[in-house]
Design a protein around this nucleic acid. Structure first.
Lengths: 340, 340
DNA sequence: TTGTAGGCGTTATCAG
DNA sequence: CTGATAACGCCTACAA
């Protein structure tokens, strides 16, 4: 077993000092061509690579970024993660992921694990529990230590930091409008509990579209379904309220709605139009294919990573920090569950 | 901005030596209760936490594990990752993920990035290109350096290391058998190019079941579809060969098969039975719901992490290393696309 | 009971 | 042109 080789080994073998080796490997002009060649050849032969940990300690830079997300088996987060990972890798950063599982405690623990030197900055989407409790001390603490933080999607106004969000309210408004333009009047919203920042924004957009079109907002047309649990009762909800169009805040609800509607004999899109959120795999393979709001997670992730790395690398001048909130423009992918 | 505090800061403030602080914080019995209290109180007040990087350098242990997977927007890998992350976290390890994107080069680059001290060991599934090229030097190199490696799912016989795989051949045999037991004779296989170790194993199981049941294996009944590309021609394939049962090596093919069959007027499962692989979200929301082989990714991931951490922590006695290959038992989840 | 010194691997400064 | 030294933050054997 050929153990990893260090500067010290090379120095000993070649009978020079460690600093000479270090400089020679960097091609420093202070070192003679002769020794440079000798050292570099030896290093190549034994496949010398500097030890990241030692370099990190020296530079106080790990070239790692920490990502904390509520869930990984989830198309949108996965997509964002891919965006982050891809961009970060290009810039020479590695990504450490922790999953909070929607739990406040796990979010706190994970942050603490990573905040002690393992990473140069955080990218995260808040756990459901955190948004519910509105307790953000762990975020504030990390910021106080001068560690950059970028929030995406599930954000909060209570923390001043860079953010990347979707134009949730607006795209939800537009989606609802497009249903109204199909001539639909009895439009339902299938959503989750409203403490999720994004669900809330989507609900606002839905309501605004109705109001602006002089359709009274009927709370009975808003069905709040449990998140990550068995779904039930959508068919009877549709029938009872005589719904003819639905906006759902994710694609699971959307696809479920499709089958529930077909189950009670409705034709899609003739009798009922459906628009979902999250342009994932379900939307593409459902029957009929689901019209859906693409959240462009890749773009969101890449942008979050870009913002973070800029903060990390621009030894930002302490107090006069400026935070931006970037808004990603969602787009509606028209497929077969709507008329237009 | 309250910068991170170190032993040195505490020592200076309290006018003791660094080592006294270090010992006091560990509750060492060499230190007087008095100073212990004083130091610990101070440390708590300023929220002292040891710097991971420094500890890593000292111990030559990072408490990080590296995961390299071909794709992250993919239900199975995502599930395995969750298993790894969950188990690793419990044992105090963090997880650094790199995505190879099925590319050999990216796999190599990522491995090199991580192998220089950032992590204590690797868990990986081979990129498609790597399985095609059969070039495993990068794996061997890492092993040579004494860094533990666990391969899962996409493995190779050419590297001696711990492995976690599915009983692909056997479960594929059983799935095919169950189709045969429904009275089906014209059974198709929808698969990918055969250089993927798993597709290959599944094909073997399928063929064995046919052979043992005295059904001639007809290569025309095996349709090889491009991976991660647009799928086409499944309907005409089914019709032309008068297929009445299908086994597919993933759930996308399975669900696609469902719609293609329904598109040409076949009733499922009366006219055609379908069994897919990967019990993901598609299978649960398809119409009808897809009978599928559950690969238990969580379990696979947890086991891989367990094997790896054991190797890391048991300062394994150099040469007399023993490698195990653990086999996860897949199970068939019966839903509505089959008769039984 | 406390402190000193050396080392983990690297880099940067300064002296020879 | 080369090397000694100190430092990053922590730990620990050994000395006082």
């Amino acid at each position: 077993m050929r153990r990893k080789i260090t500067l010290k080994h090379i120095a000993r073998e070649l009978d020079v000092s460690i600093s000479t080796v270090s400089k020679a490997l960097k091609g420093s002009s202070e070192i003679s061509e002769d020794t440079k060649d000798k050292v570099q050849a030896f290093a190549k032969l034994y496949n010398y690579k500097p030890n990241n940990i030692a370099v990190s300690l020296k530079n106080k830079r790990t070239k790692n970024i920490g990502v904390i997300i509520p869930d990984i088996v989830h198309h949108f987060f996965t997509t964002v993660f891919r965006g982050i990972e891809h961009y970060a890798n290009q810039r020479g950063y590695n990504v450490i992921v922790c999953v909070s599982d929607e739990s406040f405690d796990r979010e706190v623990v994970n942050m603490e694990m990573l905040a002690n030197g393992s990473i140069d900055g955080f990218i995260m989407a808040l756990a459901g529990e955190t948004q519910l409790k509105k307790d953000f001390r762990h975020l504030r603490e990390v910021m106080d230590q001068g560690m950059p933080l970028v929030l995406f999607d599930r954000v909060t106004d209570e923390i001043a930091c860079d953010k990347v969000v979707l134009n949730d309210e607006q795209i939800s408004y537009e989606a609802t409008m497009s249903l109204i333009n199909e001539g639909r009047k009895r439009i339902a919203l299938l959503t989750t509990d409203s403490f999720f920042s994004v669900s809330n924004a989507r609900e606002q957009g839905y309501k605004r579209a109705l109001r602006e079109s002089n359709i009274t907002v009927d709370e009975n047309h808003i069905l709040r379904l449990p998140y990550n649990k068995e779904i039930d009762g959508v068919g009877s909800f549709l029938k009872k309220n005589n719904i003819n169009a639905v906006l759902t805040v994710n694609e699971i609800f959307g696809v479920h709605c499709l089958s529930a509607a077909q189950g009670i004999g409705l034709n899609i899109p003739t009798d009922l139009s459906v628009i979902g959120f999250t342009d994932g795999i379900l939307s593409k393979y459902s029957v009929p294919k689901l019209t859906t709001v693409a959240q462009h997670g890749d773009k969101m992730g890449a942008l979050a990573a870009k913002l973070l790395i800029e903060k990390i690398e621009n030894d930002f001048n302490e107090e006069d920090e400026v935070f931006t909130t970037e808004v990603i423009q969602a787009t509606i992918i028209r497929r077969k569950s709507t008329i237009n």
